[in-house]
Nucleic acid binder design. Sequence first.
DNA 1: TCAATAGTTTAGAATTATTATAATGTAGAT
DNA 2: ATCTACATTATAATAATTCTAAACTATTGA
Lengths: 142, 142
Amino acid sequence: MPKNCNFIEKLREVGLRPTKQRIKMCEVLYNREKTFHFTINDLVKMISEKMNEKISLATVYNTVHAFEKKGYLKEISIDSHKSYFDTNTSAHHHFFDEDTHELIDCDESDIDKINIRKNITGKKINSVEVLVRVASDNQTQK
Amino acid sequence: MPKNCNFIEKLREVGLRPTKQRIKMCEVLYNREKTFHFTINDLVKMISEKMNEKISLATVYNTVHAFEKKGYLKEISIDSHKSYFDTNTSAHHHFFDEDTHELIDCDESDIDKINIRKNITGKKINSVEVLVRVASDNQTQK
DNA sequence: TCAATAGTTTAGAATTATTATAATGTAGAT
DNA sequence: ATCTACATTATAATAATTCTAAACTATTGA
Ligand SMILES: [Mn+2]
Ligand SMILES: [Mn+2]
Ligand SMILES: [Zn+2]
Ligand SMILES: [Zn+2]
């Protein structure tokens, strides 16, 4: 359970000034056992709850994108109407619960390594990710 | 190369009135050799070119969503900032060219069937789709 | 045939998510 | 303590999508 200081250094290392907003955001994002998925709105709420002061929506957007660029966060495209972010920045697969709109990570062991036989000339593969959409069993009755 | 009449019947069958806008949209979407991917803006342009009259943007949105609901079209989530649609409504995998923002279908033979070992209690799997992001070979030089 | 009706299109307004602007504030250096 | 570059903020602007309500049209059946 690291506290502020770690984040101050982490931010410095990649050339971001450790402002109190960014430190608070780091705490909310990384001071936890497991990685998680969130939307910008989720995050604004979380930060506001942890701070007594309000944080500007623009700052959250800016900082999320700064973190994304630095590799602290990853954007996940699941739903064209909503942006999800992930504190798990490694390549990994997802389940998406279409009832609750919740994202769930897959472990390595859940899906075999995927072998791509096609290749596109002049292009290299940047990532291969699987999305498994799930929904309540009884709702799609025929 | 089917013409209008087919579409009129097709639309009637699923309970949509065969208006001239919908018939024109069917022609643009389905009167071709191969399936394809498009954005709403692409489609508006294509339809406007094929018609002498303009078509309302709202009509294109409404009709695309009506078609989607009927299973004539499928929405593809690749980029949270843009909605792509696909006239190939079967379950299939994609390559996404990050340089050109172009979507390319995978054939069955390009990727082996994916075996999911995890299961989420009370939930059934609706789809399993792979997205392979590719980009120019020389651009991601280290 | 031809109104009646239900469904459709349309222009434009409204909404939502995101990004830009420009003034103010702050961290780090000297 | 002062300076400067970078950050935050409130607010405005933009972009994508959806809503609204009036005008239009396909279908039905008298
Ligand atoms: Mn983004
Ligand atoms: Mn949609
Ligand atoms: Zn994840
Ligand atoms: Zn496709």
